[in-house]
């Protein structure tokens, strides 16, 4: 964090947040391949389904939301290992733990950056994949909104798992084992929202519940992740 504009003690919390996000984004831009791998994985998994279950449009339309959501879940698992790993290896994370600023805010910044790099590209890619599955325009919009509300939650819950498994052997598989069960509610309400469009019932409850999950996760997970990091680094 050499580009700090003010002295660290006077750094405001939003300023700190911006700094962490910008740093992580810049680091990712220097190694663009990592971001693209996640996105390509997502596209590939979704494209495998029509090949696996057959190309009947009726069936594809029915399962589109579920397929996109599960693929997004798997893709976000794939990039979780990177969230703290590089900082852990080169010692930056240790400095962050020692920093006078709130570790929770630092973690929130890292989560936000992670979402911009792994969640947001999936949201932007999803409509294209939805078209492959012959989804209606209205269902596509709901899918985008539900992904916009849901993928940050995946990053947040994933951060807890990534922090707990930091530096462990076989951490990549383990983190999925820990995080996937906790992500099931996000998946259920996300696909439920799209399902509501096709069965022409109200979409709002599903999206509201997703919003509630987002708020809940935003409040608690940075704090829990900070605690988990302290356990892993002691």
């Amino acid at each position: 964090m050499s580009s700090a504009p003010a002295s660290p003690a006077r750094l405001s919390l939003p300023g700190l947040l911006r700094l962490v996000v910008r740093r992580d984004l810049m680091l990712a831009m220097r190694r663009r391949a990592d971001v693209l791998t996640t996105l390509i994985f997502f596209v590939m998994v979704v494209s495998l389904f029509p090949l696996g279950v057959g190309p009947e449009p009726e069936m594809l339309r029915k399962m589109a939301a579920g397929v996109v959501w599960v693929a997004a879940l798997l893709a976000s698992m794939l990039s979780l290992g990177r969230m703290f790993m590089a900082d852990y290896v080169d010692g930056t994370l240790e400095q962050m733990l020692l920093a006078p600023q709130s570790l929770s805010v630092l973690v929130l910044g890292k989560i936000l950056a992670h979402w911009m790099l792994s969640g947001l590209p999936l949201v932007l890619m999803a409509p294209v994949l939805g078209l492959q599955f012959d989804m209606s325009v209205q269902a596509l919009w709901v899918l985008i909104v539900s992904l916009l509300l849901g993928t940050p939650v995946l990053s947040m819950i994933g951060a807890v798992g990534a922090a707990l498994t930091l530096g462990l052997r076989g951490g990549g598989v383990l983190v999925s084992l820990l995080v996937l069960p906790l992500c099931i509610p996000v998946l259920i309400f996300g696909t439920g929202a799209v399902e509501a469009v096709t069965s022409s019932t109200s979409v709002a409850p599903h999206l509201l519940l997703q919003g509630a999950l987002l708020v809940l996760a935003a409040v608690f997970t940075p704090w829990v992740t900070a605690h988990a990091l302290r356990i892993s680094m002691e």
């Binding site: 498994t165 951490g171 383990l174 820990l178």
Partner: peptide
Amino acid sequence: LGFIALHAS
């Protein structure tokens, strides 16, 4: 299972 796996690893 996650609890047991995390503890074991």
